[in-house]
Design a protein around this nucleic acid. Structure first.
Lengths: 230, 230
DNA sequence: CATCCCACAGCTGGATGCAAGATTGGTCTT
DNA sequence: AAGACCAATCTTGCATCCAGCTGTGGGATG
């Protein structure tokens, strides 16, 4: 699959990178908060050295900012930046959809369609957000895989790393209309890919991403992406 | 400008990252070679700790691979990967050109045109490669800046980091025909941008990048991107 | 002469020590 | 009472130390 590491023999610092990245993405670690060496070392049952290496790696990915002699804090994004990121991501995912339309195989078609086919709009609201997020991830990941371009995958990964935490699914969990439209868009994109229409697939995917970004920004308001505490 | 750091108060590890990245890009540090803690520590007049942090950062950018208990070595790229990277980069630079066509200001137009206007095709061959590289960088950097999308800039930076070292200008230094065509393409892209035709600018830029990538691969042959020693 | 094995040297990953910069809370001054 | 000042404390950045893994070369063995 597309997961970058088979795990098992990871260096301590790499474990910490993954754990922190996940925690940040899930919103467990709030934007703007500081990441302290000693605290993290204790939390991950190690010394400060691997923690420091992990923080450098996260800085390289644009996820945290290290201020000299002060420490590392989790990056926020202005709604402006989120919009700019959306613009870039739309372009790349559009490319992925276009490539996928030319190269997708039956197995990938099956997985892609499974991602939205049995999505149940009627399930409980609190669960719905998480389920949608999974389905959504699966859908986009499959298309990316079907594009056959690993560098494209890496670039989109990179963009995900720069995204503010926990943005998407709260917006959708609360609005059946938005959610239904989103699922519909997935279906239309999938259709275009399966029919082999690269240009259409690209256009639909681009519109899909740009629309989703705007929906999220509208739903959350500008302030949410920014730092909380100083 | 677009340079990421104002320098002056960089942490040791950040200096090392920049120096290594530059050295790798220039080909001074060959693809496939190992980066030893002790040697680098001596070279940068510091201890192994900042070196290790720098290597983690470079690994996060995909520039080196760290093998547990063995060390860090400089990544090569297969011609397949270079082609995939080109595909992604063409898309992003195409977007940049399209955005630039809608937002560019006079100062940026001046810098963009300056980048190719006074380019002298008749200069000595050995110098020509370097001059072309500068001119080329300036051209693309200005368009990127004119796009007004900083996230786009970051993504393209990221791709540059993944590119194998020293690829472009040797190919152009040796062929006046290729070089002339390249300069011509720049002119046509610039024209489209100045005239405000976003779609045309995007198409021309995409073709320009894709063509350049193919030229490079043809010129250098596949092997050059791979590791030399084991 | 080829192969296997093991000890040794080299190197990395992680832990700890220490000096210096940053923060904070209290005190003194006006 | 507001602000300047300063010392105690916290935290980082870098250096050093140690244990464990890896590759290698030489000698024993068939």
């Amino acid at each position: 699959m597309l997961s970058p590491e088979p795990a098992g023999q990871l260096a301590k610092s790499e474990e910490i990178v993954l754990a922190l990245q996940r925690g940040i993405l899930l919103g467990e670690r709030p934007v703007g908060s500081w990441l302290r060496h000693e605290a993290l070392a204790k939390e991950f049952d190690t010394s400060r050295t691997p923690v420091r290496e992990a923080l450098r790696a996260l800085q390289s990915r644009g996820i945290v900012t290290i201020v000299k002699n002060r420490g590392a804090r989790i990056n926020g994004q202005s709604s402006q930046n989120v919009r700019e990121l959306g613009e870039v991501r739309a372009e790349l995912e559009g490319l992925a959809a276009a490539l996928a339309a030319e190269r997708i195989n039956d197995d990938e078609i099956e997985r892609m369609e499974a991602a939205w086919r049995d999505f149940d709009l009627e399930s409980r609201t609190d669960d719905r957000g998480r389920r949608w997020a999974e389905s959504n991830d699966q859908f986009h990941a499959t298309i990316l895989e079907a594009s056959g371009n690993r560098q494209l995958y890496l670039s989109i990964q990179d963009i995900h790393g720069r995204l503010p935490p926990n943005t998407s699914y709260p917006a959708y969990a609360e609005s059946t209309v938005l959610l239904r439209r989103n699922v519909n868009e997935h279906a239309r994109v999938a259709e275009a890919i399966v029919s082999g229409d690269a240009d259409l697939a690209r256009e639909l995917m681009k519109k899909h991403i740009l629309g989703a970004v705007e929906a999220i920004i509208r739903a959350k308001g500008d302030s949410v992406f920014q730092e909380n505490d100083v």
